[in-house]
Design a protein around this nucleic acid. Sequence first.
DNA 1: TACTGAATTAGTACTTGGTATTAGAATGTG
DNA 2: CACATTCTAATACCAAGTACTAATTCAGTA
Lengths: 186, 186
Amino acid sequence: MRLSKKERQKKLTLALEAEPFLTDEEMARRYGVSIQTIRLDRMELGIPELRGRIKYMAEKNFDHVRSLYPEEVVGQVTELKLDHSGISLLEIREEHVFARNRIARGHHLFAQANSLAVAVVDAEVVLTATASIRFIRPVRLGERCVAKAYVTKETHHRTQVDVQTTVEEEIVFQGVFDVYRSKEDS
Amino acid sequence: MRLSKKERQKKLTLALEAEPFLTDEEMARRYGVSIQTIRLDRMELGIPELRGRIKYMAEKNFDHVRSLYPEEVVGQVTELKLDHSGISLLEIREEHVFARNRIARGHHLFAQANSLAVAVVDAEVVLTATASIRFIRPVRLGERCVAKAYVTKETHHRTQVDVQTTVEEEIVFQGVFDVYRSKEDS
DNA sequence: TACTGAATTAGTACTTGGTATTAGAATGTG
DNA sequence: CACATTCTAATACCAAGTACTAATTCAGTA
């Protein structure tokens, strides 16, 4: 057997997220099933036909020009004491959450914490080596995440940074980052 | 006399600028001419058909949105066996690296691994609970990261997923994700 | 007024990427 | 084995066209 129905449907969903301009024919070819099967899949998943998807996107573009900027650093750094501590702020917006349940994807919280951990270390090259993290409770759309980082240990080429992220004083994320650094800035 | 050819064609051009989603039929109705006349007009003016216009807009929108919006699942999922394993691909591009040294920011590798770990788990709600990760060697601009995820343990509401990311067979990242799930799909 | 050329309309065959529906075949499971 | 699920096939139909041919209408003029 090639793929289970479920797997194919999941792949199909993911594929269409990345490439919404695929025809049923092309998808049938990719997964080695008939075009009818793909159509049944779309029915079950409630995915509209190609022309519908295209039109939806075109309309979104036409009357709702989006102006989102790619963030340079994840979160807004509000305080920074090099080699000591730092604070950053991240408000959870649409682009951070799962569409289904509006819960923030873990990697955004990680990204906030990680980039802060890297930012507090004062060196030319700073890279995360290892990290141990906990997502303590789900974070929802609209919540403001405050990440606080503290340098807890420093050895030859390593720095340990503890990060704690809170939403309204409640801890939602914890991480210990072991960061590698070299060519220390003076 | 209704309108001269020139006048009609000028109006038509303007109308389509304001409302690009008009069918030939609708335009024919508006100007009181036959559908064939409208088609001849479009030919002469080099205006593509409705579906072409829509698609063009959708593509513009897609490129625009995609470059600004973080992808749903980070990386391209190429294989997926639910509750068993999965593979995803991520090519490191400009937006993933530090400008200074062109080394990928850790959180992108994490995001690839994390979203893959979440994707392989077959349940309605899937959230990362904890993770323990290691960045084994820096990944550079242009390198192709292949993340392989395997489910290694399953308990009541938890699934453990091990992810290993390689670049040309060389391990660059390792992570153990402890994933919470609920309301299993039937 | 009849003629000419441009403009318009009509009609047919064909295309893409589907929907909607019915029916049958293949596969997996109790 | 029987049965259900899953998959494939086949047909009729649709929108919104392209491509092409042919006929008709109109406007100006010789």
